[in-house]
Structure formats: structure tokens, C-alpha cells
Design a binder for these strands. Sequence first.
DNA 1: CGGGATCCAAAAAGATACTG
DNA 2: CAGTATCTTTTTGGATCCCG
Lengths: 99, 99
Amino acid sequence: MKRMKIRRDACPVTKTAALLSDVHTMLITREILTGPKRFCELERSIEGISTRTLAAKLKKMEHDDILRKTKDGIYAATKKGAALRIVERAMRRYGELYL
Amino acid sequence: MKRMKIRRDACPVTKTAALLSDVHTMLITREILTGPKRFCELERSIEGISTRTLAAKLKKMEHDDILRKTKDGIYAATKKGAALRIVERAMRRYGELYL
DNA sequence: CGGGATCCAAAAAGATACTG
DNA sequence: CAGTATCTTTTTGGATCCCG
């Protein structure tokens, strides 16, 4: 994973993921958990991700059954993806308390 | 993060981290949460990590105040590191339920 | 414009040999 | 044991181009 610069005031989830994770997958998850999104929305809301990486991650996440792409090009969490909320919640809480 | 082969019977935390994270930092955390460990113990218990990567991650984690190295070369979680238990727990639970 | 695919340079990870 | 040095392989991000 490449070192990423994180602002002190960034979302706690961002910070936690930067601390211990493949930032992008977790951030895509965070976005998807707030509702279905299209490519360009994800691209805009995930600061610093390249289209190439976003496309690659989405493909992998689709393959892993975390999200599904509808015919109209919208990405939505699957059941398995939605369940990641428990992890996202723990990360958010940790970030809020310690970062 | 490199694609990692995960056995179906691997620890659920391993699977969750492979799914969404910088696997190594999370796995080092998991080990450290069970008590202080030395370099070679970590190397043995984290399947597939190279000494180079382990050394690099430990350095980064020490810098991030997740763990501390004692004079006798033992790595132990800091307070901030120990608190990652909430994340580890969520990941374990998710892995148990969905992977 | 949305949704990528391609090419390229740089960074990170892997294997492994080697040292204090 | 606890790493470091070195070399190779992967992955990433940036820019660019393509196609409906």
C-alpha cells in the first residue's frame, strides 16, 4: 500500500483505514453503505483515488460479492457488502476516539 | 496490496483483512493483541509475510504509536494499539458470519 | 459527460542472502 | 535472533485516449 497523506480533520474512517487498511476498498464501502452510487460520484467522494484504481477496486469488489453493478451503471452493496457496516462502525468509532 | 491466496479454513480475521485491507498491519495487530511478541514469533504466526515487509510494517506501526518495541526486542501494543480490539472484533465477527 | 482501457514511471512487496 | 541489503515482481497513480 502506498503511503497516503491524511489530513488531521479527515473523516475518522479515512484515518483508520489509512492506518490499517487498503484505504480504497474501505472507503468505497463507506460510500456504498450510504446508498447506491455511480462511478463518478464515488470518484468525487473518495479523495485522491484515480479512475484506474477505482475501476479496479470496483471490479474486485463485485467479484467478491460486496457490491453489484446495475444495468444503469449504479453500484450498490450486496447483503454481504451491507454487513460490512459492523466493521465500518468499529473503524469509525476507533477513529473518533483515537485519531 | 497484493492479491493473496486465502484458504477457506483460514482464520476469519485473515479472510476479512484480505478482503478489505492492508492485510499485514491488521494481522500484526491481531497477534499483538494476544500479548507481546518477538520478531520471529510474528514472522511465524503471520503466514506469508516476508521479513522485509514485517520489519517495515513494525517500524510504521511503532511510528504510528500502535506498538512499542522494548529493549529486549519485544513488540507490545500501546494503549492506542490495544484499542484496535474493537475493530479486530468486528472483523472477526464479519468473517465468521460471511466468509 | 460517464465509464472505463492503455501506457508509463514510481512505490511497495516478495525472496533470499547476509550480517551483528 | 533480529533484522538489513539486494534484486525482481506487483501494484499504483497520472495522463491520455476511447466509446456511447
